[in-house]
């Protein structure tokens, strides 16, 4: 029997992989993928807590997180398409019009 601790560690490590990818990749598609990795890490911890505490509310939250992730991906990729139409670049370092 694997204890809850191991699931939390796995979820944490997966979350940190996402954080690292988000902080270091400059391609905006890769940054979106890193966000998806982070969301999945949180989902994993919610499902494992839900399993070990015998409570279904964790699963309900995961359901809503997946909904929001789908909306976020659709909006984010639409913004990306609009961006690409104007700039022809997916590098976030080149987007500095709003720099003060």
């Amino acid at each position: 029997m694997v204890s809850l601790q191991w699931y939390v560690w796995l979820s944490l490590t997966l979350f940190m992989v996402g954080v690292f990818g988000f902080l270091t990749r400059r391609n905006i598609i890769m940054m979106f993928l890193s966000i998806e990795i982070m969301l999945n890490a949180v989902n994993l911890s919610l499902v494992s807590f839900s399993h070990f505490l015998n409570d279904l509310r964790g699963n309900i939250i995961v359901f809503f997180v997946i909904t929001v992730a789908a909306a976020e991906a659709a909006i984010g990729l639409a913004i990306l398409i609009a961006l690409f139409r104007n700039r022809a670049s997916a590098n976030v370092d080149e987007l500095k019009e709003m720099k003060g």
Binding site: Q5, F49, L53, N54, L56, R57
Partner: peptide, 8 residues
């Protein structure tokens, strides 16, 4: 890591 146990 600990919490109140649910009914499910």
């Amino acid at each position: 890591l600990t919490g109140r146990q649910g009914q499910f």
